[in-house]
Amino acid sequence: MSIRSLSQTALVLMVAALTTTAHADTADRRIALSNNYAGNSWRQVMLESWQKTTSKAVEDGLIAGADAYTTAENQATEQAAQIQNLILQGYDAIVIDAASPTALNGAVRQACDAGIVVVSFDGVVSEPCAYRISMDFPASGVEEMDYIAQRFPDGANVLEVRGLAGVSVDELIHQGIEAGADKHPQLKVVGSVHGNWSQTAAQKAVAGVLPSLPRIDAVVTQGDDGFGVAQAFENSGRPLPIIVMGNREAELSWWKKQHQANGYETFSISSSPSISSLAFWVAQQILDGHEFPKDLRSPPTRVTQDTLDDALDGLAPGSILTEPYTVDDALSLKAATSSQSAE
């Protein structure tokens, strides 16, 4: 703990104390959300969370407007054009869930040059002038393998279900899984398929590869695929492995049902879709004159056997576990990351 980080902590505390009075400065500012895709449950909850948080903020007079725009075709070119439109429309900040980490950089640069604050989250952009908020994906992969290693100290055959090939998040989580395999040499990854973050696609991919695989003890997933994996195993008549879940209601309900039937236990981890509200608060705070580091880490949301019932309580069917973020979370996020970088 250096003097620098001490003073930073003090600064953060001061800022936190001041925020309630500093809000009004952004009352006439407008923030836009540029989103590339809406066709799965995570994105739906993400958009809902944005809507909920921002409409409250508009009502409270913290901000003049916060409109969400989603592109129809999930194409980087389309989203780049959309961002250019948002620049012309005179938004003060643009929050982006990006189709590509690099392909939007030109448009993002234009926005920065026009004095617009750009905050990317989930699907982040690599353009240095933008802020990035994302979960530590490799760490979540390692955490999955840690859990399996703890369940199988004497070794296990692991099947890896990956996301959409070519998307950076898939690569990052995969790196974490690989690092976990190196860390726990008793875990053997015997197969790997792409489930495209879709229960049906995961079910199909796993059912196709299962006949060629030895006994599977555990499955690591990336979210929105665990239930499909479970279906594939149930239909194949094989013994159920430990499937690490991704916080979807279907997955958690299935887990609970299995636990009641035969004591099945597993673990669930995923990024919270309400990260969109976190991105909103960060953008609002930057407009308000606060300084943030460019790279911010949002905490993952975890479910263990002990918290399973709480997690399922009030979770709508087809939904995904999410944590509401407030402006204070955005500030504590800042504190956590800056003290990390100071160490």
């Binding site: 229960q199 049906t200 087809g318």
Partner: peptide, 16 residues
């Protein structure tokens, strides 16, 4: 059939 087979419907089910 797909919804019956995979234990429920999802928005992304028809994508491929």
């Amino acid at each position: 059939l797909l919804a019956g087979f995979s234990g429920g419907a999802s928005l992304s089910m028809g994508e491929e």
